[in-house]
Amino acid sequence: MRDTLTTVIIRVSEARVRPERFEAFREMIVSAVRAFSGRYPGLVQHEVLLSPPGALLYVSRWHSEQDLIGYAGEHWRDQPVVLPGEEEYLLAPLQVRHFMLEPLS
């Protein structure tokens, strides 16, 4: 049985990036998310994962659904958070998925 006090929601936003714009997009995302820890209560951890030249993942871990609503809004389950001007770097719209950690012990 899951302990709801230790539940963490893992949010993965995947960007398919225009290869010629990859470095500029990486810089924009890293700069933007650097301030998220102090801005969004409930953000446990976050990281940017790179797969040049065409993909970038923003992975964040959240304490609760309420925390995700504070970050991404009421439609957090299926709508990605898009930064202003982000679409000019992308080959396709952002994709967002959510996971819950399954304890192994």
Score class of each variant (00 low, 15 high):
residue 84 P to R: 11
residue 38 G to Y: 11
residue 11 R to D: 13
residue 67 D to H: 08
residue 46 H to C: 04
residue 43 L to V: 04
residue 56 L to W: 02
residue 70 G to C: 07
residue 52 P to M: 13
residue 88 E to N: 01
residue 11 R to W: 01
residue 10 I to L: 11
residue 74 E to F: 00
residue 95 Q to A: 14
residue 48 V to H: 07
residue 29 I to R: 02
residue 52 P to N: 13
residue 38 G to Q: 13
residue 91 L to W: 00
residue 75 H to T: 06
residue 74 E to V: 12
residue 5 L to S: 12
residue 68 L to V: 11
residue 81 V to R: 10
residue 77 R to N: 03
residue 64 S to H: 09
residue 23 E to C: 02
residue 32 A to N: 10
residue 17 V to K: 01
residue 58 Y to T: 06
residue 70 G to Y: 07
residue 1 M to K: 10
residue 13 S to V: 15
residue 18 R to G: 01
residue 74 E to S: 14
residue 69 I to T: 03
residue 98 H to F: 05
residue 104 L to M: 12
residue 39 R to K: 14
residue 76 W to Y: 12
residue 2 R to L: 11
residue 31 S to I: 00
residue 95 Q to L: 14
residue 69 I to D: 04
residue 2 R to V: 13
residue 70 G to W: 03
residue 79 Q to S: 10
residue 21 R to C: 08
residue 4 T to V: 12
residue 49 L to G: 00
residue 22 F to W: 13
residue 6 T to G: 03
residue 39 R to W: 01
residue 80 P to V: 06
residue 6 T to D: 09
residue 98 H to R: 04
residue 43 L to M: 13
residue 7 T to L: 11
residue 83 L to Q: 06
residue 47 E to H: 08
residue 65 E to N: 02
residue 65 E to F: 01
residue 63 H to R: 15
residue 67 D to I: 01
residue 14 E to I: 09
residue 97 R to Q: 15
residue 64 S to N: 13
residue 76 W to Q: 06
